[in-house]
């Protein structure tokens, strides 16, 4: 393959490098040697192994690449289709960090498992827990719950609720 960097005239407008330490935009050329060489004005800024290069999220028509061994935000942006194709051909693991069909399948599977577990808990777990807990609730607490519900219903319906006659314990015993 051609190891020489793409012609300067094209590359200067088509390949940009951000080193992840500053927002400076480097117009670079890339050289396809045994590793990827990122060169600005004859000075090598970075050398990336093809196996470590991954695709980062970028706009349509731009290949935005990152490197596992570089700074997390270091980015190489290739806006020329031919150069991008050349790089893609060399990076076998480019798409590994992207969420593919397997990723979506896992989300669907786990969501369904979670939904089924919630349904089972509601159908079987809650009645079981209620049966076990109901005898343990003291009568005083049940009475309080009743009082609260009573007040709310009275407040909601105003005078339309007939007074329910019932036994009342002296308040001191509550």
């Amino acid at each position: 393959m051609n190891d020489a960097p793409a012609s300067d005239g094209v590359a200067a407008r088509a390949v940009f490098y951000f080193d992840g330490t500053s927002s400076r935009r480097h117009a670079v050329t890339i050289g396809f040697a045994d590793r990827l060489e990122i060169v600005e004005d004859g000075e090598t800024l970075a050398v990336w192994s093809y196996a470590d290069i991954r695709r980062a999220d970028g706009p349509t028509g731009t290949l935005r690449a990152t490197c596992l061994t570089a700074l997390p935000l270091a980015r190489l942006e290739i806006r020329d289709r031919a150069i991008a194709t050349d790089l893609i051909a060399r990076c076998a693991r480019l798409e590994e960090s992207a969420r593919g069909h397997r990723g979506v399948g896992a989300i669907v599977g786990w969501s369904l498992a979670a939904a089924i577990s919630i349904v089972l808990v509601v159908l079987y777990g809650v009645p079981l827990a209620a049966d076990r807990l109901a005898p343990l609730v003291p009568q005083a607490l049940e009475r309080r719950l009743g009082d609260v519900a009573d007040r709310q219903i009275r407040a909601l319906f105003g005078g339309k609720v007939a007074t329910i006659r019932r036994a009342r314990l002296p308040s001191s015993s509550l």
Partner: peptide, 12 residues
């Protein structure tokens, strides 16, 4: 996918 995953897909 939100429908299939009972809403969990919304994060993705």
């Amino acid at each position: 996918l939100e429908l299939i995953t009972v809403g969990f897909y919304r994060f993705w």
